[in-house]
Simulated scan of single mutants.
Amino acid sequence: GGVRDHLLGAHAVSGFGDSFKTGGKVVKNVTGYDLCKLLAGSWGTLSVMTEVTLKVMPKPEAERTLLLRGLDDATANKAMTAALGSPFDVSAAAHLPKSAFRAGTEGLGDIAGQGEAEALTVLRLEGITASAAHRAGSLRQLLAPFGTATLIEDVASAALWSAIRDVLPFAASGALGAWPVWRIVCPPASGAALGSQLARETGGDVIYDWGGGLIWAALPPKPDAHAPAVRAHANSVGGHATLIRAAEDIRREVDVFHPQAPGIAALSERVRASFDPKTILNRGRLTRSAG
């Protein structure tokens, strides 16, 4: 889940120099405004957090991952939607198109147990061993119309998901290390269409996570990092795009965070000013400002 859902409490100092506390040590103790939700993702523009309380989850006893091979983006999106909508408690769903396994992505194909590169759709189940094994078998039957799913367990499964979490195919040390990287969040049902169209138009590569709701896009170098195309596609489905990696000269010219609609931008500025009226904290981090 998102960090904002795991931040239970915080101590912080505002731009006024005032120390304040929000939330607490347990889940159900919020009274008044839940400032934790506001502080998470503010990139230090509202306050300096000096102490945080995080909710943690127990490590699952077992982990099983089903692999579907050779699906195109649209079909993979349907398979992930079917899996996430099933009663089998799928904890993660991702799709790596064939191009993600290009030379330079060391070990990713080996982890997945495949020699020749082909698209890979992966679905994870976690829990006690008996439950994870039973749900994996049932999910395999559900996904039979999409192909025969293979299974990897525990160590191999964890290594694969670690590579997906770290977006290994787009790592700086790999074949696409010099390409700008975008993080696009959109409705999962729109993910495949958005990602495949963006890849066709730009000649870039994409990886889908969160069942299609998160798209990592590595796009060929360009002075504007393809920002107009990326943000137009994200806006068309009600999503947003953040420029994660680009050369410094590009980052000076292109907004890193998705531009907000005028009304939301005005509201955000009023909130920021209520915490930091003199624009002391992380000035210019989220938006360009003369201040």
Rank of each mutant, 00 (worst) to 15 (best):
R165V: 03
E51H: 09
T242Q: 11
L267P: 04
W210K: 06
T50Y: 05
A241E: 07
A93N: 01
H226S: 09
V30I: 15
L214Y: 08
S236G: 11
R288G: 13
V181W: 06
E253V: 05
F146I: 11
W161L: 03
E248P: 03
G9D: 01
L54W: 15
P220S: 02
N77F: 00
G203C: 00
L143E: 03
I164S: 03
D276Y: 00
D34A: 09
G2V: 15
N29F: 11
L84Q: 13
S42V: 04
A40C: 10
A74L: 15
R283W: 04
L281C: 01
G137E: 15
L7A: 01
D249P: 04
I152M: 10
G1F: 12
L160N: 03
A136V: 06
A119Q: 00
H240P: 03
P188F: 11
K98H: 09
L108Y: 11
L108C: 03
A290N: 13
W43P: 01
F275D: 07
L168K: 14
P60G: 00
L39M: 13
A217V: 14
T150F: 10
S289N: 12
H11Q: 10
L39V: 01
A117R: 11
G85C: 02
G204Q: 03
P228E: 07
D224R: 04
V206C: 09
D154H: 14
F101W: 08
W43V: 07
A193M: 09
C36L: 03
A247P: 14
D276F: 00
H95A: 00
L168W: 14
L286K: 02
Y208C: 02
F170Y: 13
D110H: 06
N235V: 04
P221C: 01
D166P: 02
A103L: 13
L198N: 06
T45L: 08
A159V: 02
T121D: 01
S91V: 15
L194H: 07
A273S: 14
A82Y: 05
R245C: 00
P228K: 08
K25I: 13
T129V: 13
P169G: 06
V271E: 01
L123Q: 06
G137R: 10
G1N: 08
R64Q: 08
D154A: 09
P60A: 01
G17M: 06
D209E: 13
R4W: 10
T150R: 13
D205G: 02
G127M: 04
L151T: 12
K222D: 13
I184L: 12
V254P: 09
S289I: 09
G191Q: 09
H11C: 04
G113E: 08
A149E: 08
F88S: 05
D224Q: 12
W43I: 02
L67E: 08
R140C: 05
L123C: 07
L194T: 13
V271T: 12
H134C: 07
G291Y: 07
G41F: 02
A83L: 11
T65N: 06
G147D: 06
G177P: 03
L198Y: 09
R140A: 12
D18P: 02
A12K: 01
A149F: 11
L267F: 14
G24Q: 03
S138M: 14
S138K: 15
L243A: 05
W216G: 07
R252M: 10
P223T: 02
R135G: 11
G239A: 06
G238A: 11
E253H: 10
K222S: 14
A133F: 04
L143H: 07
L160R: 03
A178G: 09
A92C: 07
L160P: 11
